[in-house]
Design a protein around this nucleic acid. Sequence first.
DNA 1: TCCCAGGCAAGGC
DNA 2: GCCTTGCATGGG
Length: 278
Amino acid sequence: MFKQTKDGILVTDNRFRPKDILECGQVFRYTFSNGVYGVYSVDKFAQILPFEDGYLIKTDFPDYFIEYFDLKTDYEKITDEISSYSPILKNAVEYGQGIRILKQDYLETLFSFIISANNNIKRIQLIIERLCVALGEKTKYGYAFPTLSALASVPVSFYTSIGAGYRDVNLYRTAQILSNDEKGEFSYQNLNTLNSSALITKLCRLYGVGEKVANCVTLFAFSRKDVFPVDTWIKKVYHEYFENGHADKDICKYLIQLFGDYSGYVQQYLFYYQRSKF
DNA sequence: TCCCAGGCAAGGC
DNA sequence: GCCTTGCATGGG
């Protein structure tokens, strides 16, 4: 449901709505003005504008963004399946029917979600923006997300200065570990050989990375759907719709057991839906 | 003033 | 091992 033209990537698919994709909480570096969304990924950029009966993705990196937006996956099939599970999921999918799970950069996702801990989305975006302006390379599109060597070159006080709060030491220490990772233990390639549960365990060895952040990185950067990030909103969802006597620490495992390989998708529809109700 | 936000690390059992 | 507590910051 997409094709490359001289103007960009033309998407005609009712399972592609930039508002749902970018505002559902999976990504932090995007802009919106005059009906046009802009999205950054590391040093790359794309604009999404309404075009005829669909959207046009304008970018200098079409191949990259075809993967990034997961355009080769049939989301109609996914939404049909999930809608059939229960009335709640039918509603959630209807509300967020244009969601697609982005394939994001590992380093950017990791640092973004370390910042996200016990934080709100507005402030997460501000901190990441200050991080890019201070340490990212300036491109023709704006500031890139910093490289690992840039992230590892600054002291803890830098992270304090961009407003990271008590996450400052976690950002600093994780940058140090990754930049001193001679064996490539935490390289994308090595981590990607692990199954999702082993990957989560491994990521939890980094500072500022616990169960929830590791699940997010595994879902959004490694494209694994057999995971279920549980944050304060999902806890509300659980107690409201799926309550079954589990302690908070067991909710993740329970929901994965319920939704299997669709867990990652289900999580995102529910998260977006729950937040829409304030 | 208190509560909350895409939680986590450290310390006490 | 599990449970509790403290934590920077800004908005409602």
